Simulated scan of single mutants.
Amino acid sequence: MDPTDAATAEITTHTARLRWQCRRGMLELDLLLSRFLEVGFPALDAAGRADFVRLLGYQDQILHDWLMGQAVPADAAMRRLVGQIRAAMRDDAAVL
């Protein structure tokens, strides 16, 4: 197998895994996280991508509170990422 094909297959598998992890118990979170995976995740650097994976490990209610602006993450990297996701939401809403 060509190394480029192998790398592409690995990225595709990783993205599919993340897409599955974006499926949550709350429809709002499903939509927000899945949309960010499509539009925002590709633009993140390696640290930002690792932070997104870490973010997906939080409970739904915590994520909901952060993304709806009802609470602020204590961790600086999570604050930055939540801000990016919220900005992507606003940008999407402006396009509609």
Rank of each mutant, 00 (worst) to 15 (best):
A88F: 09
D51L: 06
T8K: 14
R54C: 05
A94D: 12
A87G: 08
M68N: 15
V95S: 10
G40F: 01
L31Q: 07
A50E: 12
A6K: 13
R19K: 09
E28M: 05
A47E: 11
R54Q: 11
L81D: 02
A77I: 05
V82M: 00
L56H: 08
C22W: 02
P73H: 05
F41Y: 08
P42R: 04
D51R: 05
D30E: 00
P3M: 03
D2L: 14
T8M: 13
G40A: 11
L37V: 03
V53T: 09
H64G: 05
A94S: 09
T13A: 15
L81P: 01
R23M: 13
Q84K: 10
R90K: 15
M1D: 13
L29K: 08
G69W: 11
A7R: 13
R49C: 05
A47Y: 06
I11G: 11
L63R: 03
A43I: 08
S34I: 06
C22F: 05
D65R: 14
I85P: 04
I11W: 15
M1Q: 14
R79C: 08
L44V: 03
W66R: 04
Q70D: 14
D65S: 11
A6P: 10
G40D: 08
A6N: 10
A9T: 09
V72M: 05
W20E: 12
S34Q: 09
L27C: 06
A47W: 06
A43F: 07
L55G: 01
P42L: 00
R80M: 04
L55N: 09
T15S: 02
L81H: 00
T8L: 12
C22G: 05
D45S: 01
R79D: 00
P3I: 09
V72E: 08
R49D: 01
I11A: 14
E10W: 14
A46C: 09
R49M: 08
V72Q: 09
H14N: 15
H14L: 14
Y58Q: 07
A50F: 10
R86V: 04
H64C: 12
F52M: 14
E38A: 02
I11K: 13
L27Y: 07
M68W: 13
A74P: 12
L33R: 03
A6Q: 15
L44D: 00
T13N: 12
Q61N: 06
L63V: 07
R79W: 04
S34D: 10
F52L: 12
R24T: 00
A43S: 15
E28A: 07
L18D: 08
G57K: 13
T12G: 11
G83L: 03
Q61F: 11
V95G: 01
M26D: 10
D92K: 06
D60L: 06
T8C: 11
Q70H: 15
A77V: 09
L18G: 08
T4C: 10
R24C: 08
A74K: 15
P73R: 04
D5W: 13
G69P: 06
L18V: 10
A94R: 13
E28W: 02
W20S: 12
Q21G: 01
D51Q: 10
